[in-house]
Design a protein around this nucleic acid. Structure first.
Lengths: 191, 191
DNA sequence: GCATTCGGAATGAACGGTCATTCATTATCA
DNA sequence: TGATAATGAATGACCGTTCATTCCGAATGC
């Protein structure tokens, strides 16, 4: 089979788009700007993606899937809920450090109107996967027996606020800070 | 003194802008669209605001100030930290219900590049005001003696996630849900 | 080995449309 | 009637997208 995109132009376009969408949002980013950042001609963007909308959707699904894959990598299915939570939290921290822009992108574009059905479905599926982890923790009586959405919000929420403030330069996402936060969040969700 | 803007056109423009910025963001909203939504001519927008940028900044500062004022209205300075927290949480819920768009606007535009120095300063000052409340709770040994930013994130974060999901139609911001969440958050931050 | 041919990849100037903003004109009212 | 408020068509810039053209490496013929 012939290799697709041997020069990695498609990849370069996706990376450039991520950088710019992260900085100025979907409407604030122009296709010529993406092309320039990727060092390709404007036409090349349209050789790889049907439209600016398709581009942002491909990027969104990729960001969501990559995040979910990263968090669940090495997930200790057999371990205690406390240990499972520690795993997820630590992976979240690592992901924020390594792929900050991608993380912010996956989070902030939640339910934007340019997201198509497939993207919304991807988002829903990823969310559902983590709800299952929460439900399992509840079944073991390790987590509070309340609406799983509240548990999810108690985990995601503080994390995203800290990541955002860190990306804005207001604080450093140090190991210690994340560990303090982990302790708080665990006390919020534990049964 | 002559009354300024007796027809409330400035107000109408601000309200229209909030509706549209909330729906499609800053770059996704056009000035003619704001004018149409406010039922004024496009030129009238420029009679009241120097530019689209000034308009969004005025709106942002107004949203931030209104939110802070609302939360601190009737704040029980003499009460226990637990009661102070209950007050803030309940006001947050009321604000989300009454001014959802304004709340989302004040939150999501955090550190957008079209915000000017004055807006950033307003944001910083409001944040600082709430940090002080946290520090007082820590001084009384009612809250965990950790970085106040973590405490703030533990409060704000879950709340904003729930509000966002509720606005997206994924769940209802019921009184019961908010009370469960309040209990979780309190356990996260209490000493 | 070298010249030639070939076809998809890449390009960026050009296009129709829309943007933020202006301003000549009209409407309003003290 | 004069001063101010309001208007919306006009403007120049820039948008997303197209497509005639160029580029480039593999295949072919000699």
């Amino acid at each position: 089979m012939r290799e697709v995109d041997p020069d990695g132009k498609r990849r370069a376009i996706l990376d450039a788009a991520l950088t710019l969408f992260d900085r100025r949002g979907f409407y604030g980013t122009t296709v010529p700007a993406i092309a320039a950042e990727a060092r390709v001609g404007a036409g090349t963007v349209y050789r790889n993606f049907a439209s600016k909308e398709e581009l942002v959707n491909v990027l969104y699904r990729e960001a969501k899937a990559r995040l979910a894959g990263f968090l669940l990598e090495g997930f200790p299915s057999g371990a205690s809920t406390r240990q499972q939570f520690a795993h997820l939290w630590s992976r979240m921290g690592a992901y924020a450090r390594e792929h900050g822009a991608s993380l912010a992108f996956a989070e902030v574009h939640y339910h934007a109107e340019y997201l198509d059905e497939e993207s919304v479905e991807t988002s829903r599926a990823v969310h559902e996967r983590f709800l299952e982890v929460v439900r399992e923790g509840q079944a073991r009586r390790a987590l509070k027996p309340i609406d799983p959405e509240v548990i999810m919000a108690a985990i995601e929420g503080p994390f995203f606020v800290l990541v955002r403030r860190a990306r804005g330069g207001a604080l450093e996402l140090s190991e210690e800070l994340l560990q303090r936060a982990e302790q708080c969040v665990w006390e919020a969700i534990r049964a």
